[in-house]
Lab assay of single mutants.
Amino acid sequence: EVYKVKIKIERVLPNGEKVEEEITIEVEGMSEEELLALARELAAEPGVRIKEIEIEKLPP
Rank of each mutant, 00 (worst) to 15 (best):
E1N: 10
E1S: 15
E1A: 15
E1Q: 12
E1R: 05
V2S: 07
V2Y: 06
V2M: 15
V2Q: 04
V2T: 09
V2I: 10
V2G: 06
V2W: 13
V2R: 13
V2P: 03
V2H: 13
Y3R: 03
Y3H: 04
Y3A: 03
Y3M: 04
Y3V: 04
Y3D: 01
Y3G: 01
Y3S: 03
K4E: 03
K4R: 15
K4P: 00
K4C: 03
V5S: 00
V5E: 00
V5R: 00
V5T: 00
V5G: 01
V5D: 00
V5K: 00
V5Q: 00
V5P: 00
K6W: 10
K6L: 11
K6Q: 04
K6C: 05
K6V: 07
K6D: 01
I7H: 00
I7E: 00
I7G: 00
I7S: 00
I7N: 00
K8Y: 10
K8T: 15
K8E: 01
K8D: 01
K8Q: 09
K8I: 09
I9N: 00
I9H: 01
I9D: 00
I9F: 07
E10F: 02
E10V: 04
E10C: 03
E10T: 03
E10N: 02
E10Q: 03
E10A: 02
E10Y: 02
E10L: 03
R11K: 07
R11D: 00
R11G: 01
R11S: 02
V12L: 09
V12Y: 08
V12T: 15
V12P: 03
V12N: 07
V12W: 06
V12A: 14
L13M: 09
L13E: 04
L13A: 06
L13K: 12
L13D: 05
L13Q: 11
P14S: 11
P14A: 14
P14Y: 04
P14V: 12
P14W: 15
P14G: 10
P14T: 11
P14I: 05
P14E: 07
N15Y: 03
N15Q: 03
N15F: 05
N15P: 01
N15E: 14
N15A: 03
N15G: 08
N15T: 14
N15H: 08
N15C: 04
N15I: 01
N15R: 02
G16M: 04
G16V: 01
G16H: 04
G16F: 03
E17P: 02
E17S: 06
E17A: 12
E17C: 13
E17Y: 07
E17R: 04
E17D: 09
K18F: 15
K18W: 15
K18R: 13
K18Y: 13
K18P: 05
K18T: 13
K18Q: 11
V19E: 09
V19L: 11
V19I: 14
V19R: 11
V19F: 05
V19Q: 11
E20A: 03
E20R: 02
E20C: 11
E21V: 03
E21M: 04
E21T: 06
E21K: 04
E21R: 05
E21L: 05
E21W: 11
E21P: 01
E21A: 05
E22Q: 13
E22W: 11
E22R: 03
E22G: 03
I23Q: 02
I23L: 09
I23N: 02
I23G: 00
I23A: 02
I23T: 02
T24A: 11
T24V: 15
T24R: 05
T24N: 07
T24K: 08
T24F: 11
T24W: 05
T24I: 11
T24E: 06
I25D: 01
I25W: 11
I25G: 03
I25P: 01
E26M: 09
E26S: 14
E26W: 09
E26P: 02
E26L: 09
E26I: 08
E26F: 08
E26R: 09
E26N: 05
V27Y: 11
V27W: 09
V27G: 06
V27C: 12
V27M: 11
E28K: 08
E28D: 07
G29Q: 11
G29V: 05
G29M: 06
G29W: 08
G29Y: 11
G29A: 08
G29D: 09
M30N: 13
M30Y: 07
M30S: 11
M30L: 13
M30Q: 12
M30W: 13
M30H: 07
M30E: 12
M30D: 07
S31C: 07
S31F: 10
S31D: 13
S31V: 15
S31K: 09
S31G: 09
E32A: 08
E32M: 15
E32C: 10
E32V: 12
E32S: 08
E32F: 07
E33Q: 10
E33C: 05
E33H: 11
E33M: 12
E33L: 11
E33T: 13
E33A: 12
E34T: 09
E34N: 14
E34I: 15
L35V: 15
L35E: 00
L35Y: 06
L35A: 13
L35H: 03
L35N: 01
L36P: 03
L36C: 11
L36A: 05
L36F: 14
L36I: 14
L36G: 07
L36T: 08
L36S: 04
A37D: 10
A37G: 13
A37K: 14
A37V: 13
L38Q: 03
L38N: 03
L38A: 07
L38W: 13
L38F: 13
L38E: 03
A39F: 07
A39Y: 09
A39L: 13
A39H: 02
A39G: 03
A39E: 03
R40H: 05
R40I: 04
R40D: 09
E41G: 08
E41M: 07
E41N: 13
E41T: 10
E41L: 14
E41P: 02
E41A: 14
E41Y: 10
E41C: 13
L42N: 02
L42M: 14
L42D: 01
L42R: 06
L42K: 03
L42T: 12
A43R: 02
A43T: 14
A43Q: 05
A43V: 14
A43W: 06
A43C: 10
A43I: 14
A43L: 07
A44Q: 12
A44R: 07
A44F: 14
A44K: 14
A44P: 03
A44M: 14
A44T: 11
A44N: 12
A44S: 15
A44C: 05
A44W: 14
A44I: 12
E45T: 13
E45L: 10
E45G: 06
E45W: 10
E45Q: 05
E45M: 14
E45D: 15
E45I: 07
P46Y: 11
P46K: 09
P46L: 08
P46D: 06
P46S: 10
P46C: 15
P46W: 05
P46H: 11
G47R: 01
G47V: 01
G47A: 04
G47S: 05
G47Y: 04
V48I: 06
V48D: 04
V48F: 03
V48T: 07
R49Q: 14
R49K: 15
R49A: 12
R49F: 07
R49G: 06
R49H: 14
I50M: 01
I50D: 00
I50T: 01
I50F: 02
I50S: 00
I50E: 00
K51D: 03
K51T: 13
K51P: 00
K51G: 02
K51V: 14
K51I: 13
K51Q: 08
E52A: 11
E52S: 11
E52H: 12
E52F: 12
E52D: 11
E52Y: 10
E52V: 07
E52C: 08
E52G: 07
I53F: 05
I53G: 00
I53S: 00
I53V: 06
E54M: 15
E54Q: 09
E54H: 12
E54Y: 14
E54S: 13
E54N: 15
E54C: 12
I55C: 06
I55D: 00
I55K: 01
E56L: 13
E56F: 13
E56H: 15
E56N: 05
E56S: 09
K57Y: 13
K57I: 07
K57R: 05
K57M: 08
K57S: 08
K57C: 06
L58Q: 09
L58E: 04
L58V: 06
L58K: 07
P59S: 14
P59Y: 15
P59Q: 07
P59L: 08
P60K: 01
P60G: 10
P60M: 04
P60V: 10
P60A: 08
P60Q: 14
P60I: 15
